[in-house]
Structure formats: structure tokens, C-alpha cells
């Protein structure tokens, strides 16, 4: 084995090195496994042999877990397993979409602000600081309240609340990178600002953004669950883990299982993303061996 390994190591790219470190990181692998499992479940929801998540049944109201309903049924006789799987779609897509939106606005803003500086940088930095001075959840609640309650609006609210983190992070990275010699080299051979930002700056600021994005997915999933729990996210009858908990809290004594499953799922997925984020941070850190 080692005879094959050695030459490969000698010419390995940073991506290969990071991947190898990630594979050796136990926590990251567990995280990747959890995230992968729930993502597959969410993607495969329409194909799985499960009951309709919104089909009510008056003969099966608040039934404890059984062979027929492995996780029990809710207050309208709906199958909780099916709702959990469809709920995974809502929770995970809220996590992915809101972070994707925050990254795709925040990163370009951060790059432009860090690269060009001057009045644009001052303006962007001031606004970013102001938004960072407001607690994440309060901003999201206020936005969701004024935009109106829906899953899409809660995703927008979460994305806007997460945006300043990415602007600040990217800007800081750009400031560190733009004085590097390779950027100066690119400028000296006559490359324009756009080409420099896309080809030289962006790839070099990417690793910390990737780590932050992974950790923010975890925050966003909790935020979506919180908004849905408050009734500001996913609207009935569609399922999300947060909205399932919102109903479950009224039946704690009669049907505790209604509350146990969605919360455990949130807990697991969030641990998964946190583990993966921590692992990525270690793997992408050029200083660690």
C-alpha cells in the first residue's frame, strides 16, 4: 500500500489533502453520515412506501407507536413517520436554501467590499456591523412577521439574518489575501479586477466560507424549526419538524411521542452539521498536518 501512497502524497492537491484529512476525522465522518442519511431520506420522500403525510384518519387519532405506525400517529391520525420524512424536506431545504442565498449575496458583497475598499467598503461594513448587532433570531422573527408566515418567507428571513456573517468573514479574508504576491503577479500581467477576483481571490477565500456555511446550516435548521414552532414558518397541513413540535406541545400528556421524534431529528441533524463543520475546519486548516 505504502508504495502506492507515497507518490500520490507527493503530488496531492490541497483538495486531495483536505479530503484525506476529512476521511481520517472520526467526528466529521459521523457528521457526514448523519447529514447524508437525512438528505437521502428527504430526497427520496416521494418514492418511499410510506402513507400520505397529510392523510387524516379519525380511527387512528394519537395512537402510540405500533407495527402499523412505527412512530405513532398525531392528533389528526396522520402517520408521524411519513410526516417526519416529509418534514425533513422542509427542514433541510430551509437549511440549504437560506444558507445558499446568504452565501451567494454575502460572498460577492464581501469580495467587492474588501477588494475595492473606499466608500463602498465603509458603507457595506457599517451596515454589516449594524445587522450583526441584532440577535439572529430576533431579526428573523421580525422579518418573518412583516413578510408574512410561510416556509419561503422564513427561509428569506433566515438568509437575510445570516447574510452579515458571510460578508464580514469574506471581507476579512479578502483583505488578507489581496496583498499576497500571486495577486500582485496577476495584476502585473495585466489581468482585470473581475478576473483577479474570480480566479485568484475567490478560490483562496473559499475554505473558511465553506466551514462557516456548514455550521450556519445547523443554525438555520434550528432557526427554521423555531420559526415554524412559533407558527411563522411552514404552514399546516404541510409538515416541518418545528411545526410538528408546535402541535405536539398541546398533547404532551396524551401523546408524548408526537414531541419526541421531531425534536430528536432536529438534534441529530444539527449535531451532524456541527460535527461536519468542525471536521472541515480541521481538514481545511493549512497549518495542521
Amino acid at each position: 500500500m505504502s508504495a502506492i501512497d507515497t507518490p500520490e502524497t507527493a503530488i496531492s492537491s490541497p483538495t486531495n489533502r483536505a479530503w484525506r484529512k476529512l476521511k481520517a476525522h472520526k467526528g466529521a465522518l459521523v457528521g457526514l453520515g448523519i447529514v447524508g442519511f437525512f438528505t437521502l431520506l428527504a430526497l427520496a420522500a416521494p418514492l418511499l412506501p410510506i402513507p400520505d403525510p397529510n392523510a387524516t384518519s379519525w380511527t387512528a387519532i394519537r395512537k402510540a407507536p405500533s407495527l402499523l405506525h412505527p412512530l405513532g400517529t398525531d392528533e389528526l391520525g396522520r402517520d408521524i413517520l411519513a410526516r417526519m420524512i416529509w418534514g425533513a424536506r422542509a427542514s433541510l431545504s430551509a437549511g440549504f436554501f437560506s444558507v445558499t442565498l446568504a452565501v451567494s449575496i454575502g460572498v460577492p458583497l464581501g469580495i467587492l467590499s474588501g477588494y475595492f475598499g473606499k466608500w463602498f467598503d465603509i458603507l457595506v461594513s457599517r451596515v454589516t456591523e449594524a445587522f450583526l448587532a441584532m440577535p439572529f433570531l430576533i431579526t428573523a422573527i421580525a422579518l418573518a412577521a412583516f413578510l408574512g408566515p410561510s416556509l419561503i418567507n422564513s427561509m428569506i428571513a433566515i438568509a437575510l439574518s445570516a447574510l452579515p456573517i458571510f460578508v464580514r468573514l469574506t471581507r476579512g479574508q479578502v483583505l488578507a489575501v489581496k496583498t499576497e504576491e500571486y495577486v500582485e503577479g496577476a495584476r502585473s500581467i495585466g489581468l482585470g479586477p473581475v478576473a483577479i477576483m474570480v480566479r485568484y481571490i475567490f478560490p483562496n477565500v473559499l475554505p473558511p466560507i465553506l466551514v462557516q456555511a456548514t455550521l450556519t446550516v445547523a443554525t438555520a435548521i434550528i432557526a427554521e424549526a423555531s420559526l415554524s414552532f412559533l407558527g411563522l414558518g411552514q404552514q399546516p397541513p404541510a409538515a416541518s419538524w418545528g411545526s410538528m413540535l408546535n402541535v405536539a406541545k398541546n398533547f404532551l400528556v396524551q401523546a408524548p411521542w408526537m414531541a419526541v421524534w421531531p425534536g430528536s431529528a432536529i438534534f441529530l441533524v444539527v449535531i451532524g452539521f456541527n460535527l461536519l463543520g468542525d471536521g472541515l475546519r480541521d481538514a481545511l486548516d493549512p497549518r495542521s498536518a
Binding site: A218, I222, A225, S226, F229, L245, A248, K249, L252, V253, P256, A259, V260, P262, G263, I266, F267, V270, I271, N274, L275
Partner: peptide
């Protein structure tokens, strides 16, 4: 610590009510 950072606090609240109060 990882668990503390990953649990949704409203769910923890619900579970504690179930256990400690109910």
C-alpha cells in the same frame, strides 16, 4: 458541549416539562 449547542432549546424545554413536571 456539542449536544448543548445542537439541541433546539424549545424542544429541550418540552422534554423537561414532560419529565420533571408531568
Amino acid at each position: 458541549a456539542l449536544s448543548g449547542l445542537s439541541v433546539a432549546n424549545f424542544w429541550l424545554g418540552i422534554m423537561l416539562i414532560l419529565l420533571v413536571s408531568v
